[in-house]
Design a protein around this nucleic acid. Structure first.
Lengths: 158, 158
DNA sequence: GGTGAAAGGTCATTAAG
DNA sequence: CTTAATGACCTTTCACC
């Protein structure tokens, strides 16, 4: 069900050096090239590897400010609010959550002043009762999956 | 300072079809191969494109539960807490946020029961005063940057 | 394992700011 | 004059059969 050690090594290798090909992977890992090819195909079929698209940094694009907005939604307005949020480019992701708020979304902006504009555009929508915004300052742990990959590989008994 | 239209088209093309190479990109966009290479080099130098590593789906790895934990930290314990969180594989990212010197971290787990174990491992640490966890249910807007890229390209007057 | 193809580098030329 | 784009050539390397 999970991944084994070779899968983990493969993911780790490709994460560190994404441009190397299948042949180079087989050399580094000491396995046949067909094995690497088969593993990669399986990992993609199973959805473990979603793709190899470019990872874009919003800050370098001119959006250095990140904020998390917790939205409280009026009953039954969920679908409309989702559709609304999907139209705002600065909303990078959105989840419905349990707990205090109903939705949590990640927002970026060009500056703190610009963040106000984005927030306004987000919350000026009937159906959003309340919005609490937390600006992200430091980011000591940037998004990472490698430790999880290693753990998943270990758990599989590889 | 930002990106122009060609940069935006390049990012979009590579996002949609990551497997195509530089030559194919040049054909699709109607520019010379050297141009595509130069643009890609520049985008990577400037940090707009961080890399082309595999995008791993934690759910497919066996961690289908996502949660966001808001942590309240005891004064002066910030660095220790950060170091602690960095050692937990299930903590995918962590930000310090405005509020009360709080932190927000994204956590994944194998199940809701497993989430309890992860949360315990996170909060059983002197320095963490309080933790509020919100479990993510639906994810109507998955992490995306393309709309932002298009806006950034437009803004640059390309 | 062989073969066609592409990546990556360099270079001179040319267009545009 | 500086920057960028272009097309050509060459070598290494890879992906596919």
């Amino acid at each position: 069900m999970g991944i084994d050690g070779l899968d983990g090594q493969l993911i780790e290798l490709l994460t560190n050096e994404p441009r190397i090909g299948v042949l180079e992977c087989s050399r580094r890992l000491g396995v046949a090239r067909g094995t690497v090819q088969a593993r990669l195909d399986r990992l993609r079929e199973r959805g473990v590897i979603r793709g190899f698209g470019p990872q874009v940094d919003p800050a370098a694009l001119g959006y250095p400010v990140t904020a998390f907005a917790t939205l409280e939604i009026k009953q039954g307005q969920g679908p409309d609010v989702r559709a609304h949020l999907a139209t705002v480019p600065e909303v990078l992701e959105m989840h419905t959550t349990t707990g205090q708020g109903d939705m949590l979304c990640r927002i970026v902006a060009r500056s703190n002043a610009d963040l106000q504009r984005v927030i306004d555009r987000v919350v000026v929508f009937e159906g959003i009762v309340r919005a609490a915004t937390a600006i992200a300052m430091e980011n000591p742990v940037t998004y990472r999956v490698l430790p999880l990959v290693r753990q998943a590989a270990d758990t599989s008994g590889g």
